[in-house]
Simulated scan of single mutants.
Amino acid sequence: MIFNIPLLTALIAIVAAQTLKIPINLLTKRTLDLKIAVSTGGMPSSHSAAVCSLAASIGLADGFHSSMFALAVLFSVITMYDAMGIRRHAGTHATILNRIIRLFPAHSKELQEEGTLKEMLGHRPIEVCAGAVLGVVIGLLMN
């Protein structure tokens, strides 16, 4: 496993993207939040970084005409589409539901005891693109 360069590249891309979220959040929101390094959502997308670094690494190792590269690219597209689509919309739904819970506290005591729903689940397109670029760069550097 340690000699599997595509796998190692993807894992490094995840760690790099998650780590970069801390200074980016500090610059954009002026708050130091270390928990963001282990959360979903945010800039850059670690999912995009992982799958794009994996695809780049496979392309460089097996050739850009190989079946493995085609599989990795398709996997990347589906993952990034999901991050911008379903997961992002689920986060929007969580935001709306949390607002409803706060508006009707008498009727939602049971829901409030459960805690609020996590709102930052998916990514904006710019976050996915930034993760993809980071991933490709890491894939190129690792090979």
Rank of each mutant, 00 (worst) to 15 (best):
residue 138 I to T: 05
residue 21 K to Y: 11
residue 60 L to E: 04
residue 134 L to F: 00
residue 126 I to S: 14
residue 15 V to Q: 02
residue 125 P to W: 09
residue 61 A to S: 13
residue 129 C to V: 15
residue 117 L to H: 13
residue 126 I to M: 10
residue 68 M to Q: 15
residue 85 G to C: 06
residue 136 V to Y: 06
residue 11 L to K: 03
residue 94 A to G: 11
residue 132 A to Q: 06
residue 34 L to Y: 09
residue 76 S to N: 07
residue 19 T to I: 12
residue 80 M to Y: 03
residue 32 L to V: 07
residue 63 G to P: 12
residue 29 K to P: 00
residue 102 R to Q: 15
residue 99 R to T: 14
residue 96 I to P: 09
residue 142 M to P: 00
residue 36 I to H: 04
residue 96 I to D: 14
residue 78 I to Y: 02
residue 104 F to G: 05
residue 112 Q to E: 10
residue 57 S to N: 04
residue 32 L to N: 01
residue 51 V to Y: 02
residue 51 V to G: 00
residue 92 T to I: 06
residue 75 F to D: 04
residue 108 S to I: 07
residue 4 N to P: 01
residue 112 Q to C: 11
residue 33 D to S: 01
residue 80 M to Q: 03
residue 111 L to R: 03
residue 94 A to H: 05
residue 7 L to Q: 07
residue 53 S to T: 07
residue 25 N to M: 03
residue 42 G to W: 06
residue 80 M to V: 14
residue 113 E to N: 11
residue 120 M to L: 14
residue 125 P to G: 01
residue 84 M to I: 12
residue 55 A to M: 09
residue 54 L to I: 09
residue 110 E to I: 10
residue 111 L to G: 07
residue 87 R to I: 08
residue 72 A to Y: 06
residue 60 L to C: 05
residue 133 V to T: 07
residue 5 I to T: 13
residue 128 V to T: 13
residue 66 S to P: 07
residue 101 I to Y: 07
residue 80 M to W: 02
residue 74 L to S: 15
residue 139 G to T: 04
residue 110 E to M: 12
residue 104 F to D: 12
residue 91 G to A: 06
residue 109 K to V: 15
residue 106 A to C: 09
residue 92 T to L: 14
residue 60 L to N: 03
residue 127 E to N: 06
residue 38 V to G: 15
residue 59 G to D: 10
residue 90 A to S: 12
residue 62 D to E: 15
residue 29 K to M: 00
residue 12 I to C: 02
residue 52 C to G: 02
residue 5 I to W: 01
residue 94 A to D: 14
residue 136 V to I: 13
residue 49 A to G: 13
residue 46 S to Q: 06
residue 14 I to P: 00
residue 8 L to I: 10
residue 17 A to L: 04
residue 35 K to T: 15
residue 130 A to C: 03
residue 70 A to G: 14
residue 35 K to Y: 11
residue 62 D to Y: 10
residue 46 S to I: 11
residue 64 F to Q: 09
residue 119 E to R: 04
residue 64 F to I: 06
residue 102 R to Y: 12
residue 43 M to P: 00
residue 82 D to W: 05
residue 10 A to K: 02
residue 17 A to N: 08
residue 129 C to I: 15
residue 12 I to Y: 00
residue 75 F to R: 09
residue 15 V to M: 05
residue 74 L to C: 15
